[in-house]
Design a protein around this nucleic acid. Structure first.
Lengths: 220, 220
DNA sequence: TCAAAAGTGTTGTGCATACACCCATGC
DNA sequence: GCATGGGTGTATGCACAACACTTTTGA
């Protein structure tokens, strides 16, 4: 058989202390006026990875770094107009770089907006299920992937890093134990700089050292 | 766009001390005479999970137990006649139940045959890549899934269990440490029976206790 | 009695957890 | 000087790795 074939992106970012997901407000039937994952049809000769890049680029103006396929969703009833197979991917963009640039570029959607994963609106299609699965995967791989570092600016404090872990794992972590663990991993490079513009003791800044990461996990 | 849409199954079994994969010999172009994963087109109103069940049933006469989606493969060039999107699944059948029943049921393939994963022939399409990815996933989840027990007969010895682990992880394990670990997990029920028909000391038989497994990992 | 595999304990190491106080800074 | 978050150490338990010998059985 033949089927329509789309890509849906779970685009993550991190700001205001929360893990956030980018959603679009649909301007077309079905599910007109509902919030949905940004998704598009894939071009005839377009590789899926390129389609994901294109979609996050068109929506955010940025090149994505982290990209992971989540799986195919093809329930016969997932789309009211007949089966449409979608392949879900997750991507991550740095909020600092993208802040003021989020805007929809097609007529299919009215606006794009970040939502904290803790407070998602009701979603079109099976997109809630897709996000749940994506979060579950993110959670289970958080220790072995670069995702947390893609979510942070290039230079970050240990407290920021801990906040990212906490919002992905959805639980609080002990500060001392967390720092011990991170120090053990040895992926971070301590910078000779500290935070600026805070009205309390400025925190040390760190940088992710990708080479050391790859040494630990075997280059992939 | 629209695309053709198939399911490919990585069907595992375990015998002769090795993890084995079921392959079919193609009788049609493209890749006529090549070995390939058993795969079929999905029916218009057929759910993917049902298609997987149907395929493993048609090839082995058995109902599969373990089933896991691996992901979508949709490279523009993966099929010489234009893009065909395939969703790969892995399934497991018990060799004891299936031994003498493997036979192809369509004209598209000449025969079905088990191959040890250590000695695969050259494969059609991107099926090597699919198997590699599936093995990698099996490896990384072996401790948290029921897969190993689906690969064994209902009653099994600890040595058999260890062999399954070893062939999935592709490395040798220490007997004492392995047994300690398994005992700790607490999923196994010791039976009042021992092995029969061996010319050396008969080993104790065990059974997998699914309820205890689910208690440990939270029912899913 | 021999061959083959079954079965069994101890020790060291590293990692996760629990837990509370002083320090530096800007205002 | 005070409010705010930054930064630090120790003790315990558990999972994992290394390592070798005795026991049981059938032939």
């Amino acid at each position: 058989m033949q089927t329509h074939f789309t890509i849906d992106c779970v685009v993550y970012s991190f700001f205001e202390g929360d893990l956030q997901v980018l959603l679009t407000e649909r301007n077309e039937y079905p599910y007109k006026d509902w919030w949905a994952l940004p998704g598009f049809f894939v071009g005839n000769l377009e590789e899926m990875e390129d389609a994901v890049k294109r979609i996050s680029y068109e929506l955010t103006g940025l090149k994505d770094v982290f990209m992971e396929q989540l799986g195919a969703f093809a329930g016969v009833k997932r789309h009211p107009q007949g089966r449409i197979l979608t392949v879900a991917y997750s991507t991550i963009v740095r909020y600092d770089d993208v802040k003021s640039q989020i805007k929809p570029v097609t007529d299919y959607m009215r606006q794009a907006k970040w939502f904290p994963v803790k407070e998602l609106p009701e979603l079109a299609f099976d997109h809630k299920e897709i996000i749940d699965k994506s979060l579950q995967k993110l959670k289970s791989t958080v220790n072995y992937s670069t995702a947390v570092y893609e979510l942070l600016p290039e230079k970050f404090t240990l407290t920021q890093l801990q906040q990212v872990y906490e919002s992905i794992l959805n639980k609080e972590l002990d500060k001392r134990n967390f720092r011990k663990k991170i120090a053990n991993l040895g992926f971070l490079k301590e910078l000779p700089e500290v935070q600026k513009g805070v009205s309390y003791r400025a925190a040390r800044l760190y940088k992710f050292d990708k080479r050391k990461f790859q040494k630990s996990f075997g280059v992939e």
